[in-house]
Amino acid sequence: MNANRQKERISNFIKQTKTNETTAKKYLTKFNWDLENAVQQYNHDTKPPVPQTKPLENAYNKYKNPSSGDIEIEGIQNFCTDLGIEPIDPVILVISKYFNATVMGIYKKEEFTQGMISLVCDSVDKLKSKLPVLRRELSDPVKFKGIYNFVYGFSRETGMRNLSLESAVQLWRLLLGNRFPLLENWIGFLEKRERKYDISKDTWEMLLDFLEIFEREGLAGYDPSGAWPVLIDEFVEELSKSNN
């Protein structure tokens, strides 16, 4: 194989594996410049070990309610204590997303076990050591949006289509309070309404978009012809009046 083809395969190996040129050459020469087999072997060699399930089962049993078999409020509080965080620390929402938890205040065995495996943790101590990394996801705009949107379904009462205003306000303050000064205006607008509406999924998700636009551009960035939820349209109308 000529030098140009070798350089091309080294480049492709690096793109696929996010590694360096030295490693790329090592694997490609080992497999006679067969890119597919070289990448496959590299991925096999560098794959993180799957956590053992027995320690995870022991950890789960420490926190579960013996009657229901689930980790419930008290167990989650103890879990947070062992992690060195408060139950209202937003990072617990990041963890809950990795667990793919379906109901706030409950971790089922499969959620806990599969979540810990996805985090490559076979103990609570290992998870604790990863908290700084998980916390950084709250500052990453793309990852934060995924967490924020997950929280809506996770926080609804079982069988309810929408999220209660009371719950939404608590969660907005927890997730958005330090990000958007306009948030308290929004909450005040909702709470003073004669009729208190539950919050729809559309309103929940698009509020974050609106606050980000407002933070960058103010009301000038708001497009009234956009498909905004009615509550946000009415909020903008009130803001416009107060600014005149």
Rank of each mutant, 00 (worst) to 15 (best):
N162E: 15
F154T: 04
Y148E: 04
N162M: 08
M160A: 13
I147D: 00
G146T: 04
Y148F: 15
L174A: 11
L171V: 07
K143L: 14
D140S: 10
S167G: 04
R173I: 09
V142N: 12
L163F: 03
R161H: 11
K143P: 02
P141S: 12
T158S: 14
Y152A: 04
P141V: 10
G153N: 15
L165A: 10
S164N: 03
G153A: 06
D140P: 02
F154G: 01
S167V: 10
G153T: 09
G159W: 09
F144M: 10
P141N: 13
K145C: 08
L165H: 06
R161S: 13
Y148V: 04
I147P: 00
D140M: 07
F150I: 03
I147M: 01
V169F: 00
K143C: 02
S167E: 08
L171Q: 09
V169Y: 00
S167D: 13
D140F: 04
D140W: 03
T158H: 13
N162W: 05
Y152P: 01
R161A: 13
Y148L: 05
Y148T: 04
F154Q: 01
R173Y: 10
L163Q: 06
K145A: 11
E157F: 03
V169L: 02
M160D: 14
Y148M: 05
Y152I: 00
V151K: 03
V169R: 01
Y152L: 00
G153H: 11
M160Y: 12
T158V: 15
R161I: 14
K143H: 05
T158G: 11
V169H: 00
K145Q: 15
E157V: 05
D140H: 09
E157R: 11
N149V: 08
N149W: 01
V151N: 03
V151W: 04
V169C: 05
K145G: 02
V169K: 08
Y152N: 02
F150L: 03
R161G: 10
S167M: 12
N149Q: 13
F144I: 09
A168W: 02
S167P: 00
E166H: 07
Q170H: 13
E166D: 15
L163H: 07
L163T: 05
E166G: 00
L163M: 13
G153C: 08
S164D: 06
F144T: 08
F144A: 06
Q170G: 12
L165W: 06
G159E: 06
L163K: 02
S155W: 03
G159L: 07
V151E: 03
V142C: 06
V151M: 03
L171R: 13
G146Q: 14
V151A: 11
Y152S: 02
E157K: 12
F144K: 07
D140K: 04
R156A: 03
N149Y: 05
L174T: 14
S164H: 05
E166P: 00
F144E: 07
S164G: 11
P141A: 12
L165V: 06
A168H: 05
S167K: 14
